Amino acid sequence: MTIDFRRTVPVFRIFDVAKAHEFYVDYLGCTVDWEHRFAPDMPLYTQVSRGDLVLHLSEHHGDATPGSTIYTELSGVRALHAELAGRNYPYLRPGLEQDEIGTSLTLTDPFGNRLRFNEPGAAAQPSDGAPARACLSDHPGAATSGTAPRGVVASPEYAQYAAEAPPCDAPHQTPRPDPG
């Protein structure tokens, strides 16, 4: 018998259906494919999708861990960024980031789950062969050189990173002044 994996569907934990719909349907542009509850007063389990992006969202305790991340490859990340920038969603203003694997856009939903959209491409590799790492957005909150990103404790390892810091603190899209 041959093993044939068909598709993977990530499950994200949600805590508020209205907030989930505001983010996934109104902001990200997904469609609600179906919803399931064992009874009207039971937690929701639903599927949302946009093209080949398919996600399950669950209010059920134990179905997923809040703060999870998915990584998905796509073409058109700049167009997605422009589309989202034109939406009236006051809770998120993501930037584009470019590194050695491509151009990426990271979104964080209202429950702390992250969706990392990456468009691989030759544009991510400079002509001299050195890895590229640059923040491609004009983010309003700028950190000062040597400031640790959220959740990073200043340490000798971080000090070395800060000395060689790229102009952006990945994955937070916080622009930094060029240390040069």
Rank of each mutant, 00 (worst) to 15 (best):
T2Q: 04
I3L: 13
I3Q: 07
I3E: 09
D4N: 11
V9P: 00
P10G: 10
V11Y: 01
I14D: 03
I14E: 04
D16Q: 10
D16P: 12
A18Y: 04
H21Q: 14
E22M: 11
F23P: 03
V25W: 00
Y27G: 00
G29C: 08
G29I: 04
C30H: 11
W34K: 04
H36F: 15
H36Q: 14
R37I: 06
A39F: 03
P40V: 11
M42G: 01
P43G: 04
L44P: 00
Y45S: 10
S49T: 11
D52S: 12
L53I: 09
V54D: 06
S58P: 09
S58F: 08
G62D: 08
D63Q: 05
T65D: 09
P66E: 07
G67D: 03
G67Y: 11
S68F: 09
Y71S: 07
T72K: 07
T72I: 15
V77D: 02
R78Q: 14
A79N: 01
A79V: 00
A79T: 02
L80R: 07
H81Q: 00
L84T: 05
L84I: 05
N88C: 09
P90N: 04
Y91P: 05
L92I: 13
L92Y: 03
R93D: 07
L96G: 03
D99C: 10
D99P: 02
S104H: 04
S104Q: 13
T106A: 01
T106C: 11
R114P: 01
L115N: 00
R116D: 06
A122M: 02
S127K: 12
D128A: 08
D128Y: 12
P131W: 13
A134Q: 14
A134H: 15
C135F: 07
L136N: 06
P140V: 13
A143E: 11
A143G: 15
T144A: 14
S145R: 14
S145N: 07
G146M: 09
G151Q: 12
S155P: 07
E157Y: 08
E157D: 15
Q160Y: 06
A162V: 09
A163V: 07
E164N: 11
P166N: 02
P167Y: 05
A170E: 04
T174I: 15
P175W: 10
R176C: 10
R176E: 03
